[in-house]
């Protein structure tokens, strides 16, 4: 694993991106910031990881939904589990009595290929999205890919900005968790605990926030950022 990353980082010249990353890079174009927020296309993202440590933890699942014309098409979502390479087999047997024999999910590079093909040039939305993006970029770098070029917007920051436009970061973060905000904006949180489920809730939250910004006269990406 670390060896792979090492090899990628030093052993391969920068130009030899993985095919999926090359495709992504070629087609990426930044959004027009003067277009109305409600007409832009967004990808709302969430990941499940083995933990919060950027160095040692890994992504387990990637979940994403798309917002187009203020709608979320159910047939156009990304829900993908990554095959885990490191297995603490003995621990697993002793704790759960299970033996990990078959490998489920897709290899990380396939998941990344799916992910980069999915996001296209859409603006990426997520709750505390910074961490998810870093995890994906870390994995991407390990597998011959690069960083995410898309514009990234954090819904927790948007909610804070709505409440205190002058100094959003002064607000207490615990009032801006996904759970608290869903409750506040009447979003039914039924099946949390999956990346896709959370991405869907975040998408609803984002649509509601956009409407509230529009009411305040903030109607374009330029005004929002």
């Amino acid at each position: 694993m670390i060896w792979n990353g090492f090899k990628n980082f030093f052993g391969q010249p920068q130009k030899d991106w993985a095919t999926w990353y090359n495709e992504y890079q070629k087609t990426y174009h930044p959004p027009d910031k003067n277009v109305l927020l409600s007409t832009l296309s967004y990808v709302v993202l969430d990941t499940e990881t083995t933990g919060l440590d950027l160095k040692t933890d890994q992504i387990i699942t990637l979940g994403a939904v798309r917002i187009q014309n203020q709608e979320i098409p159910v047939h156009n979502v990304l829900s993908c589990s990554i095959r885990q390479n490191i297995l603490h087999k003995q621990d697993a047997v002793s704790i759960h009595g299970l033996v990990q024999t078959e490998k489920k999910g897709v290899p990380a590079h396939e998941a990344l290929a799916m992910f980069f093909a999915y996001i296209q040039s859409d603006i990426i939305i997520g709750h505390h999205i910074g961490f998810d993006v870093k995890m994906i970029e870390k994995t991407s770098l390990h597998h011959g890919g690069g960083t995410i070029k898309n514009l990234i917007i954090d819904t927790s920051f948007l909610a804070k900005r709505l409440d205190n436009p002058m100094n959003p970061n002064s607000l207490d973060g615990k009032n801006y968790s996904l759970d608290v905000l869903c409750k506040r904006f009447d979003i039914v949180t039924k099946d949390r605990h999956t990346a896709l489920g959370d991405a869907f809730l975040t998408a609803l939250l984002f649509i509601k926030l956009i409407h509230l910004f529009e009411k305040k006269g903030i109607k374009t990406l330029k005004q929002l950022l």
Binding site: T50, R83, Q84, L87, L98, K104, G105, V106
Partner: peptide, 8 residues
Amino acid sequence: YRIFVFFC
């Protein structure tokens, strides 16, 4: 919990 492997 990492032994639980999720799949598409």
